[in-house]
Simulated assay, not measured.
Amino acid sequence: MAVKSAKVSASESIKHESDVLLEIKGCPFIIERLGEETTATDKGDMVYNLLLEFASGGTLDGLIHKSKGHKLSEYDVRRYTRSILEGIQHIHKYDYVHCDLKPDNILLLPTTTTSSGGTSFVAKIADFGLAKKTKVNYSRWRGTPRYLSPEAFINNKQDQSSDIWSLGCIVFEMLTGKSPWDLKPGYNPNNFPDVLMFDHLRTCKLPTGISDMARDFLKSCLAMNSRERLTAESLLSHPFVAQPQSSKEGHTKVKLINSFLGYASGQLGQAVYYAFKIASLPFRCLAQRNFVIFVVVLLLLGFSGFPIAAVSFSSGGLLIIDMKQDNIAAMSLSSGGLLIIDYMKQDNEI
């Protein structure tokens, strides 16, 4: 068990954290509140104590700095990111914004022992002292500058999309060991004009040497415009963190491929994703110049084994129809997005 303590006269933040944890209790990806108590010191001072579950694995920040090259394997990054996302989704469901998501506030708790004798850890969100309701506004941003969103700096606006930006910073740091926005020498986050002008912040550059799915996930979190960031619920379906699911008879799957690269998931799989990503480039270029192209070709669908009857491309749209198998796949290509609607009529489950 871990204990957070403060003199009763200075315990407002801890008591607030206790209240938030009590309200959102029940999520396995948020640190558990075990109780509270008030004690007296030898000098007679009254102390408020918040009792929490103990994280024997330390913090995510400590793990990053202990890792080789100060970065984690993409496999581990995906595991921890999904856990954090599950926690964020739960927080947002209760209309809260955490406001201070960072590796220091992500705790690691043991779950199982691996086949090699090691211990597997799960990530849990902690430290809710700065959490607020979504519509509550303050005169100044709350949290840690390195993980704050642009709108928090400029407009003191922190809503649920701000937590998504912070998540992107955490994922970036797990993958690279560095912050997305490197601070130039002399930067002072308390200097308000500096913050407004962004004189001491460099625009983030996505790291090289990571998978396309990881890059696309980061773009979905680190969009400068807060309205372009995906929600926690949507990000949980992203292939970077998504858990595989089986398809059912008559099931209609709609996957939104967001941001610049786009992504595909579900039954089409990663192989088709990469094929469409490459194949779509010339079509997107042509579509942006308002060309209308109609192409009829014979292709072989890997998952059906039957040829496609017709392929039609017009104004950024690609329609594939397999008349023999009643398979219809419609793709809409536009600037910055790919929408795949895959309807499959089958007699048996896959």
Rank of each mutant, 00 (worst) to 15 (best):
Q325S: 09
Q243R: 15
A126F: 01
H16V: 01
D347T: 12
N137I: 13
T208A: 14
H98S: 02
V292N: 13
L256K: 13
H92M: 07
K133A: 02
S116N: 06
R140T: 08
D45Q: 15
L130T: 08
D42N: 14
F276A: 10
N188Q: 06
Q243T: 15
I14S: 04
L235Q: 01
P28G: 06
L218F: 11
E228F: 13
A309N: 06
S226I: 15
S120C: 07
L109C: 03
T176W: 04
M197V: 09
L256S: 09
A123G: 02
A279R: 00
E36V: 15
L63G: 02
L63H: 10
F54H: 08
C27F: 04
G129L: 01
M197F: 07
G336P: 03
Y80I: 09
Y263P: 03
V97Y: 02
Y75D: 11
C204L: 14
G26A: 07
D194T: 10
L218H: 03
P150A: 12
N191A: 09
T38H: 13
S315E: 11
A40K: 15
V136G: 00
G250A: 10
P193E: 12
G269T: 12
Y274A: 04
K248E: 14
R215P: 00
C204H: 14
V3R: 01
T144H: 03
A2Q: 00
L52S: 08
Y96D: 01
I106V: 09
E151D: 06
I170M: 12
L51R: 12
S73Y: 07
I320N: 04
I278L: 05
L281V: 09
L319T: 13
G57V: 04
S162K: 04
R142T: 03
Y274F: 07
V297P: 00
K133E: 01
D127F: 01
R33K: 12
L299S: 00
K253E: 10
L63N: 04
L72I: 06
M46Q: 15
T134R: 11
G26C: 09
H200S: 07
G62W: 14
A214N: 02
I30H: 04
Q158R: 06
R289E: 13
V20C: 06
G209L: 07
V77A: 04
D95R: 14
K205F: 10
P185D: 09
S211C: 05
L300I: 04
R79P: 00
N290I: 03
P185N: 05
P150M: 13
E36N: 14
N258S: 11
L256T: 09
D347I: 13
D194I: 05
M331I: 14
Q160D: 12
P239S: 08
H16D: 00
T231I: 11
Y80S: 01
L196K: 12
F198M: 12
P185G: 06
I328Q: 11
G129K: 01
S335A: 13
